Measured scan of single mutants.
Amino acid sequence: TQSIHIEKSDTAADTYGFSLSSVEEDGIRRLYVNSVKETGLASKKGLKAGDEILEINNRAADALNSSMLKDFLSQPSLGLLVRT
């Protein structure tokens, strides 16, 4: 696993530069990185398409609903625990 911390203040970007997809496997919801913008903040921090997001801001990914995800992604900083 890899811990990634991203700050939007690093650039004038209003997004982190990646998209997520939610997949249900064996009754457990998993979050995967769908795509990463080549010039985006997430790419600079090493996030890659296909990575599994285990935690966002110290909250287990399978416990997050879509409104919580939207809220986290609109925050000025983001902490991710990722399995590559």
Rank of each mutant, 00 (worst) to 15 (best):
M68H: 07
A13I: 07
K48E: 07
R29A: 08
I28Q: 12
A42Q: 06
L78F: 01
L54H: 01
S22G: 07
S9K: 13
N34L: 08
S43T: 05
M68R: 05
G79E: 15
S67E: 15
D14Y: 03
S19K: 06
K37E: 15
T39E: 12
L78W: 03
S77K: 09
T39W: 09
I6N: 04
I56E: 00
R59M: 14
G46R: 00
S22W: 14
N34R: 13
N34G: 12
R29Y: 04
P76E: 15
A49L: 10
F18M: 06
I6G: 01
I6K: 00
A49K: 13
L73W: 10
H5N: 07
S35A: 12
D71F: 06
G50P: 01
D62N: 13
K37H: 12
L73F: 15
G17T: 00
L69P: 07
F18S: 06
K70A: 13
D10W: 05
D14M: 06
A49S: 11
A61I: 09
H5I: 11
N58E: 09
G79I: 12
V36W: 04
A12N: 14
D71H: 15
G50K: 03
L80D: 04
S35F: 08
T1P: 02
E24L: 10
D10M: 08
S74R: 14
T11S: 14
D62T: 12
N57G: 02
G40W: 00
H5Y: 14
D62A: 14
I53N: 01
R30I: 02
D14N: 06
G27D: 07
E52V: 03
S19E: 12
D62K: 11
L54N: 02
K8S: 07
S67D: 15
T15H: 08
L47Q: 00
A61V: 14
D26A: 09
Y32W: 09
F72W: 07
L73P: 02
R30L: 02
G50N: 04
Y16L: 02
L41Q: 08
S9N: 05
T84G: 08
A49I: 13
D10A: 12
S9Y: 06
A49R: 11
L78R: 01
N34K: 15
S22E: 14
Y16F: 13
N57R: 01
F72N: 12
S22M: 11
A13S: 11
L69A: 04
T39Y: 15
A13V: 11
R59Q: 15
V82A: 06
R59C: 14
G27I: 02
N34E: 14
S67N: 13
K48I: 03
A63K: 13
L80E: 04
S67W: 10
T1V: 15
K44Q: 15
E24T: 12
R83T: 06
D26K: 11
D62H: 13
G27Q: 03
T15S: 14
A61M: 07
A13P: 08
S35P: 00
L54C: 02
S35Y: 12
E55I: 00
L69R: 02
G50Y: 04
A13L: 07
D51G: 01
K44S: 08
A49H: 07
R30D: 01
S66D: 10
L31A: 01
L64I: 14
E24V: 14
N57Y: 05
A12I: 09
G79S: 14
E38M: 07
G46E: 00
T1S: 07
D26G: 10
K70C: 12
L64K: 01
R59S: 10
R29Q: 13
L31W: 15
T84Y: 04
G27Y: 00
H5S: 07
N57F: 00
D10P: 13
A63W: 03
S43M: 13
N65F: 00
D14R: 06
